[in-house]
Write a protein that binds this DNA or RNA. Sequence first.
DNA 1: TATTGTTATACTCTATAACTATA
DNA 2: TATAGTTATAGAGTATAACAATA
Lengths: 137, 137
Amino acid sequence: MSTDALMDALVRTSFEVMGALTRIGAAHDLSLTQLRVLGILRDRRARMTELAVFLGLDKSTLSGLVDRAEKRGLLARGKNPDDGRVVDVYMTPAGLELADRVYVEVRQALSPATDRLDAVEHDQLIRLLEQALGGPR
Amino acid sequence: MSTDALMDALVRTSFEVMGALTRIGAAHDLSLTQLRVLGILRDRRARMTELAVFLGLDKSTLSGLVDRAEKRGLLARGKNPDDGRVVDVYMTPAGLELADRVYVEVRQALSPATDRLDAVEHDQLIRLLEQALGGPR
DNA sequence: TATTGTTATACTCTATAACTATA
DNA sequence: TATAGTTATAGAGTATAACAATA
């Protein structure tokens, strides 16, 4: 079955990419999860539970995660005017700045791989990955 | 730059794949790292330092990791006949069996994605990923 | 009562530093 | 002296259970 070859390629690729993300994150004292949070909150605020569901984590885990990021001045908590129980989380200017820097570094880190493809292959790969990921999303 | 679209697709794909691996691992009480160790030791034994370098972890981290896997009966430590300082690590039959089961589950978990491609696209994606990963490896 | 979030607790993963044993 | 591994320690990430506040 050639499915195994594809699975192996996907898993290997993923470990490469996650390795780069982990390394870059570590250079900024950010875990993979913190990195994801920065990515998610880059263009919108979210409530704690929303973040937890999105990340597939328990709410209690988010409390600690946000605590540490807040203490570092990357995120901030805010009251939600519509529901007194809800806590909204959003990025500070420092958090946004860090997210931008990380984004650039990730692009650079992946460029050795993406540069091995010519323009046509480049677009082909995007199309195939998006097709495999599926959905209109 | 279309590089960003490719980077986004690669990162999204990687999070999908790692999510599947994490979920399947968790169902068997295995962390992502434990899963990698099982994958590595599937077809060969290795010394502690060798594993640490391969995984990009400190030796001391490996000690704990192997401790726990050994206590569960998945891995075993053995003396190296050539060098008294070296500790070899290898899989037990139970570890091999678990690795096989996990492999099948990962393939199943990724099949919704891989099934969205026809045979030609399938092979194209394998080729493009391997090319991007680079090297003869 | 149900939902949102935090806190207390416990375990795993991780690194650094100090140590033991072997080379 | 140098290398291979372990242990002690400490911090982050994670989940479960119990709790407080709000709906």
